[in-house]
Design a protein around this nucleic acid. Structure first.
Lengths: 219, 219
DNA sequence: CGTAGGATTGACCCGACTCAAGTTAAGTGG
DNA sequence: CCACTTAACTTGAGTCGGGTCAATCCTACG
């Protein structure tokens, strides 16, 4: 019955290519998406082009909630891999809150979880050294990826070093040198993508205890 | 009728002194608060003591939502001034979602707004220079303060340079030298607190266009 | 008068940035 | 199949923004 509503709530699917812009800062957009497949990233720009990647969106994540709630988007979103999105209409969000309190609760839950991730990220960028930071982001992304990736069988993070640099708040060159250190220590492997070999050591370097694993709602 | 519920939902008030810890990272706490008066700040620590202040809570802000939704607190909260909190019980949150969809909507709205602030902060710490960053935080805090402070009549931000340093992700010494530059330029005044004299110039330095002013819900 | 939290200042150092070449690998069109 | 392009990654040299260390000062307060 819930699922039935979710599908009525849904108005369509949208596929976008790698590199495509899903949302652009400053735009109004009547849609709200859920990622069904692929990776995207949220970022903000300064007028001179400096870019900060603020978080990544994986399958199950909501994209564009802020725009739906407060009108104008305050950040942009770009597809990191080919992405399939489930499209909702902003107006129906009210209906959802009125008729499906449990789903509304889940939406809030997702927003609060985003906040947690941002907090940890801010700690990282503000207070961790380059090596700690790199270790943190890779451990973080790997953990998130693991929740949606095949249980066994290898996979890679679909990021370039430019993405990492802009996530870490470091220059591209220094990011490269920092990752090289992690590769030397055999904690990760880099082949046009990143494979984490030793998650625990990364966490230890980053002084990070991992993500609290609570069961997430489906939405 | 809504207000009536809000007051039934409320279970009490709590006053805490400046410097008191309201939440401690890792704890479970059955309460959820709204700030009625005063300032608090949210922060995270690394095991060796490095601290990152992640955001500030002013009157009208929710404190402890994450703990309510996901169990364990992932950050700490400390009173920056004497603070009066309105106490809610975690369990009643469900009731609120079930019976007051509009209030539930407001809670989500607040969470999304937090997220926006964190995004901008992350941009700041990751990509802005020391001077830009300092200008940004002061402009940001001043804007927020203005929404709850007396319309005319002077006031000051109740922060020390240590707080700013931990917000900016800079050392205390460098923060001091950076603020000194802003004082020289007569953009702010420092007297054991900070008074902003020229908000626009700060925003310009920070390349920040200010907070989108939308009407916030009461809650 | 002594103490303590906060602010300030100067000297020195280092982590991260910039600049400037490379190298590699994957297209793409002739 | 090969020349050309382009995105991504590497590497080294030199510089600089911001960090650390160490005083010192100021003021409120007991």
């Amino acid at each position: 019955m819930e699922l039935e509503f979710v599908s009525r709530f849904k108005t369509g699917e949208l596929s976008v290519d790698r590199g495509a812009t899903i949302f652009l800062e400053g735009n109004h957009n009547p849609h709200l998406y859920t990622v069904l497949m692929g990776w995207a990233f949220r970022y903000k720009l300064l007028p001179d082009g400096r870019r900060q990647i603020v978080n990544y969106a994986l399958p199950g994540d909501l994209v564009g909630l802020q725009g739906s709630l407060m009108g104008e988007m305050q950040h942009s979103v770009e597809a990191l891999t080919p992405v399939i999105l489930c499209v909702f209409e902003r107006e129906k969000l009210e209906t959802l809150y009125r008729n499906h309190p449990d789903l509304a609760f889940d939406v809030t839950w997702l927003a609060a979880q985003q906040e947690q991730m941002l907090d940890e990220n801010l700690l990282s960028v503000g207070r961790r050294s380059a090596l700690e930071r790199a270790a943190y982001v890779l451990a973080f992304l790997w953990s998130r990826a693991s929740t949606v990736a095949p249980k066994h069988g290898r996979f890679e993070l679909p990021v370039t070093q430019r993405h990492l640099a802009d996530t870490l708040g470091l220059s591209l060159v220094h990011t490269n040198k920092t990752i090289a250190k992690l590769v030397e220590r055999r904690l990760v492997r880099w082949n046009g993508g990143c494979e984490v070999l030793d998650l625990e050591s990364l966490q230890k370097i980053a002084k990070w205890s991992g993500m609290p694993d609570v069961q997430r709602p489906l939405v």
